[in-house]
Amino acid sequence: MTEAMTTVTVASFALVGLTIALAAALKGWQGWLEVKRMELGSAGAGAGEPRSAAMERIEIADLKERIRKLESIAACIDL
């Protein structure tokens, strides 16, 4: 009878430990999702802000560089 009680006690402690670990993981996951929502929200809010000409030139140069790299990949040329 004592061995059976020991087994039940160990199993119950393991179940409680698993529950605590899963609750902590779920809380962390929800926190990570909230951070990503905030990042997406701040990116959408910045879309209406006026940008300077220098920022536009930098973005255009970046896009041109990306296009050049994609074209070289499409042509099977190593950079």
Rank of each mutant, 00 (worst) to 15 (best):
Q30F: 08
I60S: 06
M1I: 04
A61T: 07
W29R: 12
A25T: 11
T9Y: 08
W29M: 13
R57W: 00
S12G: 13
R66Y: 05
D78T: 10
A23T: 13
D62A: 11
M38E: 02
T2I: 06
A23M: 09
L33S: 07
E3N: 05
A11T: 06
A54K: 00
T9H: 13
S72T: 04
G17M: 07
E59L: 08
E3Q: 09
Q30G: 05
I67V: 11
T19R: 09
R57E: 03
S42Y: 08
R68A: 06
A14T: 11
Q30N: 09
G44A: 15
G46H: 03
I67S: 04
V8S: 07
E56Q: 10
M1D: 03
A43D: 06
I77G: 06
V10I: 07
A47Y: 01
A21L: 12
A61K: 04
K36D: 09
A54F: 01
L40K: 10
A75T: 02
I60V: 13
A54I: 01
T19M: 08
P50I: 01
A47P: 07
T19Q: 13
D62H: 13
V10A: 09
M5Q: 02
A21Y: 04
A4T: 07
E3C: 05
L26A: 14
A43R: 04
L26I: 09
I20N: 07
G44C: 10
S12I: 14
E49G: 05
L22H: 06
L79I: 04
A54T: 01
L70F: 12
I77D: 07
Q30I: 05
M55K: 08
A23V: 15
S52K: 00
C76M: 12
F13W: 08
I20C: 14
T6S: 10
I77F: 00
K36E: 11
T19H: 03
I60Q: 06
E34D: 12
C76S: 14
A54Q: 02
L26P: 04
R51M: 04
E3F: 05
M38G: 09
L40T: 06
V35P: 01
A4F: 02
A14S: 14
K27H: 15
L40Y: 04
A53Y: 00
A24W: 07
I67Y: 02
A74V: 04
G31L: 00
A61Q: 08
A45P: 10
A75C: 02
L79F: 01
A45R: 03
V8N: 10
V35K: 06
A11Y: 00
T7I: 03
K36C: 08
T6Q: 08
V16R: 15
I73H: 13
A23S: 14
T6F: 08
A14R: 15
D78C: 03
S42C: 15
G48K: 08
A53M: 00
A11F: 01
M55S: 03
A43K: 07
G44S: 12
G44I: 15
A45M: 06
A24G: 06
G48Y: 01
G28L: 14
L22S: 14
L79V: 02
S42Q: 09
V8G: 03
E59Y: 00
E56T: 09
A61C: 01
L79Q: 04
G28S: 11
L63Q: 11
M38T: 11
D78F: 08
V16L: 12
R68K: 10
S42P: 05
T19P: 09
V16Q: 09
K64L: 10
G46M: 10
